[in-house]
Design a protein around this nucleic acid. Structure first.
Lengths: 109, 109
DNA sequence: TTAGGTACTTTGTCTTGCAAGGTATTGAAA
DNA sequence: TTTCAATACCTTGCAAGACAAAGTACCTAA
């Protein structure tokens, strides 16, 4: 059963997902399934149908690149890597995020 | 001219707008134009075409009610007021927001 | 050779943010 | 008294994107 609280969290997650993806890839290259796991650990649950198109969009924007790598089991994995442009964008997102946190704190006080 | 940075901020704003509206109305009742002003002050710029439908949605969900009041100049104003249900939802949004801030901090570290 | 696990992709639907345009009220200027 | 400007609310049409669900493909082991 889905709670009201789940809806709220899903709603809030929108728009910051791109920031999360770049943050994850900034630490270490990763493939989609591992990104999903990491997001889950951080309580930012996303499904495949959301993540794959998002990765493709960021790749098309030049924020990410990727390379194929054999898997120890199963089909090959598409490892995504953040680019210089991606790192630059991540820096701007840091500012944008911090500003938004401050804005909300202002509204909330 | 719109900068990349503006796009990022617009993108991040999505999904937290409902939270902002309830936060504003939790402090004091207000009409659409005054809400727009307050959002602008907090650097969360939104346009009419976004705000009006959002207020109507929240009203239909029972989070807000409203009353008409004469304006000192111009047409009457529709003052929105947060309801008990709205305050309850706002409480949940506080938790959701704080969790998201923590999650992002975790991802970022 | 088929079953199960892993991984990537696509399709269709629904929500929602926004630009642009529209309606209505009021008071002051021409 | 008509017109204009300011204020305020609302609607329409489009585009982006989140997601459920279904599809494709690869690999290994029984």
């Amino acid at each position: 059963m889905e709670t009201t609280s789940d809806n709220i969290r899903a709603q809030m997650r929108k728009g910051v997902l791109e920031y999360c993806i770049l943050s994850i890839l900034n630490k270490q290259e990763a493939y989609a399934s591992s990104i999903l796991e990491e997001l889950k650990k951080a309580n930012m649950i996303v499904v495949e149908g959301t993540l794959y198109p998002l990765l493709i969009r960021q790749k098309n924007q030049g924020l990410l690149s990727y390379r194929w790598e054999e898997s120890p089991q199963g089909p090959p994995r598409k490892y995504y890597v953040i680019t210089d442009k991606g790192r630059s964008q991540l820096g701007e997102m840091d500012s944008a995020w911090q500003e938004m946190v401050d804005s909300i704190e202002t509204l909330r006080k």
